[in-house]
């Protein structure tokens, strides 16, 4: 008798809790929220402490947000990067993140109070160290490689990493970027729509090098115990690539959104990043990184454009790239 009422009571409470469970909608890129990305772990971790239901909505985050405008149901957006934040900011949809960014563990200072970094990496060319013996140690050396070394890159018009390469070249070569593209062109095997196709071609052995991230070898080291994939480290520096989260100003769950922004910089979230998003966490002491990450080569210099610079450079840089590749 007592037992029954206990169960009934528990059910009642559970039912009530369910009915009132607030929902936090987080817009994220497909790779982020997929079964094999950081999404599921983050969802579990945050739900354990928020008494809420975290729901990911996937897709092309910024275009979707711009389409939805003020009516968006998003509370938080995760997975933006500095190359698109100018347009994101201009939309007026975002509120300050309210987090202290003074003690981030990133190689650059972060003062933006709207977009909050959660992980970073650098663009880099990945190669197989058993096949390519003398890997280039600078972008100049890369450009002077023989033309039968083949590289796959991504199209900046369709891919974020492709766009990052474009800005990387611009950061190193400035006005001489067209000449750099000219030299790179004969080594470019092909240009793919997305990162996945390129990386697939590289792991199939079709290409000798692939445009990816400096942290890519970590996947092979940790998940596959494969030490043959390395990032070529260039003296000129590498383009700094940071992924960001933002709070939507019109959210109907402001407290939850704030709690989530807080959670983003928590050790639990940050510790999950290396082996799920295969990037450096934005705020985690080096000694807490997984072992494989310690084996990664890190560039001496981070090249970086502020979002205004990036926005101003995007179109001219694309024209340069197109002009050079069109020859």
């Amino acid at each position: 008798m007592k037992k029954t009422s206990l169960v009934a009571g528990a059910l009642l409470i559970a039912g009530a809790a369910h009915a009132e469970t607030p929902v936090l909608q987080v817009y994220a890129p497909d790779y982020f929220a997929s079964e094999w990305g950081p999404g599921p772990g983050i969802e579990k971790g945050f739900e354990a402490q928020c008494n809420c239901d975290l729901q990911f909505v996937t897709g092309d985050v910024l275009p979707r947000l711009l389409l939805e405008g003020e009516r968006t149901e998003a509370d938080v957006v995760i997975g933006l990067n500095t190359d698109v934040t100018a347009r994101a900011r201009a939309s007026g949809l975002f509120a300050p993140h309210g987090q202290n960014t003074a003690d981030l563990t990133m190689p650059i200072d972060w003062n933006d109070d709207t977009f909050l970094p959660f992980n970073y990496s650098y663009t880099a060319f990945i190669y197989d160290n058993t096949k390519l013996e003398a890997a280039p140690t600078s972008f100049d050396a890369l450009l002077s490689l023989p033309d039968d070394i083949k590289i796959v890159i991504q199209d900046p018009r369709a891919s974020i990493s492709g766009q990052a390469l474009m800005l990387w070249v611009k950061a190193i070569y400035g006005e001489k970027a067209p000449e750099a593209w000219d030299k790179l062109a004969p080594k470019v095997l092909t240009v793919t729509k997305g990162w996945s196709e390129s990386y697939g071609m590289f792991t199939d052995g079709e290409a000798d090098m692939v445009l990816s991230y400096i942290t890519s070898p970590a996947y092979h080291i940790i998940a596959e115990e494969d030490m043959t994939k390395s990032a070529a480290i260039f003296d000129e520096g590498h383009y700094f690539f940071v992924e960001l989260a933002g709070k939507i100003a019109g959210t109907d769950q402001p407290e939850l959104a704030d709690a989530f922004m807080n959670y983003v910089l928590s050790e639990e979230f940050q510790a999950a990043i290396p082996t799920s998003n295969w990037s450096f966490p934005a705020k985690l002491a080096d000694d807490k990184l997984p072992e494989g990450f310690g084996k990664l080569a890190v560039p001496a210099k981070a090249l970086f454009f502020s979002e205004d610079e990036a926005e101003a450079l995007r179109k001219p840089a694309l024209d340069e790239w197109l002009a050079a590749s069109w020859k």
Binding site: D30, Y31, S34, W36, G194, S196, Y199, G200, T203, D204
Partner: peptide
Amino acid sequence: LYRLMSAYRM
């Protein structure tokens, strides 16, 4: 399939 590829699981 695309998600697997973007998670390095070629």
